[in-house]
Structure formats: structure tokens, C-alpha cells
Design a protein around this nucleic acid. Sequence first.
DNA 1: GAGCGATGTATCGAGTCGATATGTCGTAGG
DNA 2: CCTACGACATATCGACTCGATACATCGCTC
Lengths: 216, 216
Amino acid sequence: MIDVAILGLLDDDELHGYELRKRLGELLGSRLAVSYGSLYPALNRLEAAGHVKAVTGLPARAPASPMSGSLAGELAAYRARRRATTDQGGRRSGGRGKKVYGVTDGGRRRLHELLVDPDVSDDRAFAVRVAFCHHLSRSERIELFERRRAELAQRLDQRRRTANPSGRVGPYLRSLLERDTEALAADVAWLDRLLAAERADPHPDSAVGHDPGGHT
Amino acid sequence: MIDVAILGLLDDDELHGYELRKRLGELLGSRLAVSYGSLYPALNRLEAAGHVKAVTGLPARAPASPMSGSLAGELAAYRARRRATTDQGGRRSGGRGKKVYGVTDGGRRRLHELLVDPDVSDDRAFAVRVAFCHHLSRSERIELFERRRAELAQRLDQRRRTANPSGRVGPYLRSLLERDTEALAADVAWLDRLLAAERADPHPDSAVGHDPGGHT
DNA sequence: GAGCGATGTATCGAGTCGATATGTCGTAGG
DNA sequence: CCTACGACATATCGACTCGATACATCGCTC
């Protein structure tokens, strides 16, 4: 799950951990933003696997969000990094290092691999995969969406089968189950919309490559 | 989360771990059913805290599900338990013990305490609490639902504020966020329905006590 | 120049998951 | 008969995640 998010974000921009987490919060809603206790170990894992590497340079693009005066902060961080990079002895040395990560070719391959993974049972993981599914070809996207749709449909009629064997459920539990079924149905409808859009859009070819920009 | 589910289920029926897990699966959909790696440590925790106790007797009611021939199994398990209960030396002794748990008075107090907890940010935990909120008084239920509603409303307009600063989100991410917003709105509407039903129902008194049964 | 809040990296304890081990029981099949 | 298999049942392991926290620096204000 978190691997997809990291690789996907790093493919757009070279980032450090803190910024990575902020973007994930904006992307998916702050509730399912990963914690540092997941993020940093995950970065170390990915670095050890060769999927990302620390570039230790300035990020490719400045955040460019006008509501925070972080431009001066960026410069200061740069100065601080220049001072701090020599310190790398003890683990608890701390200090600023602002390790900026970038994705490698292996990481891009890994991202694609994770995106086409047949397992679509994890809800959060699927959401993240949709967020970055522009890395897939059209047919791969359709594959992904249809597999997910099948998963949800399966949950639905499993729900209907185990619904109320003796009718003995309290009103609150009943209401809860109904709401859940509605949410499930809405999700299926959403996937159907996505699939319809996918098949209607007249672009049978370029999918994984960057769109060169058709206007302005 | 899991504590509420265990205490709530055990308050209806005395059960052992395996059956507990099955019921949780039926109750909340098999996807968010807890694993044994969570269930058994949780049972031990609750037993150590004095909230549940092993009764080591036959379960109060047989499963009574006609589709599985578990009646013979029940008898056999009884015989097996009689043979196995003496063995309690080694940790890895294994075998059948079929430890049947029941909830204590302290456990019931704990359940109530967990149900009125002001923290409603955990989605799964809230669902479980709704499933067992018949243990609450009407005013406590309204409190619970309204707090949850406020939480969701806060998420909604936080979403709307951070929506699209520069409009630069891909179509898939946009669709994902829209779907999420819709789900959030549907959840708020569901809570409003629950609240309306709560206030319309003409039963201002009996809520926490057991209904003695008005029919048959 | 001290305090404070944002930035930033990193770890800890607790809890959860999925897989697996271990063992019993009933039944099907050779 | 016995052997394999699957349901029942308890329990643990390793990997992972979370929330909290520690630690350190920067820029700002007073």
C-alpha cells in the first residue's frame, strides 16, 4: 500500500519524508495519511531494495503553494543541508539531513508491478492504486477496475446470502448493514462509471507515456 | 475496537474464540473480521483485566444453524474437553480446550465505557459501536451519533478546503476524491436518519435494560 | 536571547494481520 | 481397517502500522 504511494509520488517529484507525508495527506484525506512510523521504515526498505535512492539535492520543483512562505525556508534548508551532510557517524546524530529521495528505474518497474497486482481486496490500497493508475495502459486499467468490481460484487451477494438467517438482528445492526450495502453498491456504480469513461474515451494508444499537451 | 466487539458478543452469548470470530465475520462482513492473531491476545488481555472469564462449560445456546451438522461436533467436543482439561502444563500442549468465555460485571461496565468514549475518529470502531449501541440509553446514543456526524462534517469541509488549489489533479484522482466525498455525504445522511429515528421513537425511558419481551 | 511553532528525521510500544503449527474429530474412499 | 482430508479449535510468529514521542534546527516575534 504505502509503497505504491511513495513510488507514485516520487515519480512526479523528488521529495523528502516530511513533504511526502504532507502530500499523501492532501491526496487521500488526512485520516488515512500514513504515520512516520510507517513512512520512514518504508523508505529505508525501498532504498535497500534499490527502488528509491537519496539524491541529496534540491527537490526538482519548489512546493509553489502561495499560502505558506516556504521559499525562504527552502533556501535555509539548503544552507543547513550543506552544513549537515558531513555528519553521518552515529545513528542518533539527528540534525537536519533532509534526505531527498528519487525513484529509480527499478522503482518504476516495481510501481507498475504493484499497480497490476491481481489482489484488489484491500480497500485503502486500491484507492491509492486508482490515484496513480495513469501509470497504466488503458487495458491494464480496465483489468484493474473490473477485478475490483468483481470483488465488490462478490462481497455484495455474500452479504445478501448471510443477511438475516432468522431475522434476529437489532434495528441498529440492521441499519448498519443496510448502510454498508448501499456504500458497496455506490462503489460498484462508481467503478462502472470509470469503466464506461475508459471505454468511451477515444485514445486507444498512448496511455503510459506522458500526454504532450493538446492545448496551451 | 476489538474489545467492544468481544464484550458485546459475549454479553449476548457465552462463546469460545472460534465461534466468536465467525460471528464477527457474519456481523461486519468477513473482510473486517479480526484475525486470530488479534482475537486470542485480546481475550487474554480482557481476561487478565477481569472483563471476561472462562466458564469452561457448554455454550449457553447451540449455534442452531441448520446448514452445518455441528450438533454431533458439539457433543464430540464436549467429550474431548473432558479428556483434555487436565492437561495444562506446557504452553505448546495444544489440543482441544474449547475455552468458553463469558462477560463479567466489570466487563459490562467496560463495554459501556468504550461505547460512550468521545473519540469517534476510527471508522471501523464506530461501526462496531453502532452494532452494539442498544446497550446505551437514548441520550447516550444521540450523543454518539452527533459526535460522529460532527467528525464527518469536519472531514467534509476540510476536503472542500484542500480540494484543488490549482486544479492540477488527474482525472482518476479527481474521480476518487469525488467518490470519497459522496461516500462521506451519504454517511452524514445516514446518521441524520438514525438521529431522526431516535428522536421520533416514543420510548423516552427504557433503553439500557433488557426488554422483557412483548410477544410470544 | 529566549520562547515558540513549523520543519524534519527517527524510534518505541502496542496492537493487528496473514500465515502457520499443532492437535482433535468425523467422514469418505481405497 | 486405516488413511487422508477437511472442519473445528487454540495459539504463536514475523512483518507491518499506528500514535506518541524524542531530538534537532530554522525563522519569527517580543
